[in-house]
């Protein structure tokens, strides 16, 4: 571990620790570093992913507000210091791995939708998210239709009818609607060394 490799998180100890904590091999962690480098240098080249950089990658523009992007960023940012570091990036992407258990994916989405972090997904939160997606996609819905969609959703998901969805109710709901977790699996992650083969020029180890 030279000071330079420590700085760039490329030292073998760091890489193998990350591999042991996640579903990635050491070479796959190195390949993810290639993606991380690209994202973290797109606006400010400081080895950290800022919200604007994630926004630029996902929405093709660093400007404007997107509720869902904010939530994704906050969940990636484990240390809650306003930036995504490499270890946080690898930890979060591990949940998106095709081999990650559905329960982990379901928990991640639950946290994502639990906007106020109360341990429940409340009707008001769902309404806020539906309004946000309508604005994002330039769709218009009457208030009546919006309430009808919320009624239908809660009739299906909120089995104890207390006006909010608990984690247990959410698990049952996603098991009935597995397509809701579709975004949570990134097939690219199974072949990440093929997607970013340039890791080979910097590798510290042969898996």
């Amino acid at each position: 571990c030279s000071p330079e490799s420590q700085k760039r998180l490329r030292c073998y100890d760091n890489l193998s620790l990350l591999a042991s904590e996640t579903r990635f091999s050491v070479n796959e962690v190195e390949a993810l570093y290639e993606l991380f480098k690209k994202l973290s240098s797109s606006i400010i080249d400081d080895g950290l992913i800022h919200k604007e950089e994630l926004q630029l990658a996902l929405l093709r523009s660093p400007y404007g507000e997107n509720l869902f992007l904010d939530r994704v960023f906050d969940l990636f940012d484990e240390k809650r210091n306003g930036v995504i570091e490499f270890d946080e990036f690898v930890h979060a992407l591990s949940i998106f791995h095709p081999h990650a258990p559905m329960e982990e994916k379901s928990d991640f989405v639950f946290k994502l939708y639990d906007l106020r972090q109360t341990g429940f997904i409340e009707r008001e939160e769902v309404k806020q998210m539906v309004i946000a997606i309508l604005m994002e996609s330039d769709m218009r819905l009457s208030d009546e239709l919006l309430e009808a969609i919320l009624d239908k959703t809660f009739a299906d998901a909120d089995t104890d009818m207390d006006g909010r969805i608990s984690k247990e109710e959410w698990k049952v709901f996603v098991s009935k609607h597995p397509s809701l977790l579709k975004n949570m699996t990134l097939p690219y992650l199974k072949d990440i060394t093929t997607v970013f083969p340039s890791f080979i020029f910097n590798t510290e180890v042969e898996d």
Binding site: L93, L134, H177, L180, L186, Y188
Partner: peptide
């Protein structure tokens, strides 16, 4: 599917902010 038959989470899951596959596009 039309919004009437959709549940709210189906709509929400279509946000581009949630589509991390975009990160891997060259």
């Amino acid at each position: 599917a039309s919004p009437v038959t959709m549940n709210a989470f189906e709509l929400i899951s279509k946000s581009r902010g949630l589509d991390l596959a975009t990160l891997f596009e060259k």
